[in-house]
Design a protein around this nucleic acid. Sequence first.
DNA 1: CTGAAAGCGCTAACAG
DNA 2: CTGTTAGCGCTTTCAG
Lengths: 338, 338
Amino acid sequence: MPPSPTIHTVAAAANVSIATVSKVVNGIRTGVSEPTRKRVEAVIEQLGYRPSRIGRSLRTLRRSTIGMAIVDPNPTFLADPFITNLVAGLANYLSMQNFGLFLQGVKPHQLQASFLVRESEVDAMCVMLTGPPRTRQSYMHALVDLGQPIVAFQELLDVRLKDVCFVRQDDRGGAMEIARRVVARGARSVTMFIADIPWPAIDERIAGVRAVLSEARIELRLIRCDETKLDAVARAVTDYLDKEGAPDALIGQNDQIALTAMRVLKTRGLRIPDDVAVYGFNAFPFTEFADPALTTVRSPAYELGEKGAELLLARLESGQFASIEHVLPVSLVPGASG
Amino acid sequence: MPPSPTIHTVAAAANVSIATVSKVVNGIRTGVSEPTRKRVEAVIEQLGYRPSRIGRSLRTLRRSTIGMAIVDPNPTFLADPFITNLVAGLANYLSMQNFGLFLQGVKPHQLQASFLVRESEVDAMCVMLTGPPRTRQSYMHALVDLGQPIVAFQELLDVRLKDVCFVRQDDRGGAMEIARRVVARGARSVTMFIADIPWPAIDERIAGVRAVLSEARIELRLIRCDETKLDAVARAVTDYLDKEGAPDALIGQNDQIALTAMRVLKTRGLRIPDDVAVYGFNAFPFTEFADPALTTVRSPAYELGEKGAELLLARLESGQFASIEHVLPVSLVPGASG
DNA sequence: CTGAAAGCGCTAACAG
DNA sequence: CTGTTAGCGCTTTCAG
């Protein structure tokens, strides 16, 4: 296979200098005559010349590439539709602006060893973290030390972190809407099933639910389980029903948990929503498979990705983030489950 | 913000030449004394020096980056769990070998305009295509013309395409297993719901089902619908039941279709599997939400991604693909739906 | 309007 | 063992 043509190959073939080729490639209208431009363009076409982003980057010191690190102990780090949609929004917005997306799933303890951190490759970073608060914080610090702009998704604002922008959805607000529905139904006992590792977004949801319920003098019970394993969730729900009986309302931290709970409730012969009202969070397509349709909250995951990209590119342009936090609204998706 | 330290900064601070720094950074044991190494490493640490992949790439003409183009008219090009798992497998394998993944979702008519095609940025490409056969073929040719190695996922082998490796799952075999179950149940009428645009993997599934059924002298009815819209699927199923009545067995091209069909059947009061046996394809987690559990086929999507990465890296190393096609087996996941 | 030349950060061959 | 040097492909300034 012959080596790819470079700007020199093109220049030689078109009998011009590399400077002229560069101007043509970059669409610089001034300083190159129409005949010359035509000739160069013809040669480019004929040779199949593709400018090297590497060469350009080295010269301009801009890489036009954003890194996205998804910290997740799970190898299938893209499994969650929330992340998936967010990445799609991010990738699409970047693409439109001719920016590339460098995607990497990284296991919690490997972040430091990842070349996204160890080597200099991208103009800026996006992160989606998991794990307990202490660990996440140390990740954020490690990332900040890189001296690159960062967009952190679904993290709570930490003003001590410089050149970081926090982009998240209004989890608290969404949870409050759910809780208001619970209250309106007249539920007296409410149980929420949540992941067994702390997560800022989930804490927000809990806080939102609690705020509304406590005002109505309704107690909230919290049950933790390994939300990544559907059978662990099912077991937790089963155990709960055995020990405590059925609550009036059951809230899942996300749709997967709610749907799993719904199955368990149904096998017990409990009617939804008459015996137990069920609520989820995130409103992704598979929610539609539920029967009855799940009452949930739509996550603007795709829009979060887009917004993160937008803010990051603006930051690269202007030298600083316009704002250090951006919260997108969520909206209730009423179903028949509660 | 001070500019990032370069190899020169480090060399100056450590009182050595840039060549020595380079050796230390790249772990070249020979030709640098232990004290010098220590000193350089200390400076690197202290300055927070991160070698630039750009500089290295320019020099070595290797970018250590693979591009993944997902051609999809849908902006949420990552929505399908099959693709999601495949990308995760790809990304993880590449990461382990210190390769980066450049991810891009591209609308069908935009492939040529994408910078992954227009500019030279990656060492090799992976593609996941959609669309009618003619179009896909033209995409493949456009990609081949780039003169880069390509791994095409879920495409049928085309020996005319040079330096391309086709990585796919045994869709036909999986479909045959499903069909054998259908036959074993004693079904006489079988209907398969499929996407309204042709897709090689789906054609394989159809062919597999048909092969087994025809041997048992069972006719297969094919119904096309817009599989990307769940309500379109539901409507197609409803229409079919109205016009033709319930078949003994209903096969969905994928789990989403099967689950949607199941809902419709249930609202009609049809029992599954007694009245209608239902089968899906791809076995992703949400299948578990179904009641009864869906009989389906597990897709080795993650493994496809890994295998593609492995073959591509080996190709980069050796100069040519070891084999031009790689087919991974699928396995039946028996459920209670048929 | 066009071209010569410098230099972005790095590796590798070679000289000392 | 260490340093000097020549580019890799490109953009940009400046001179012609």
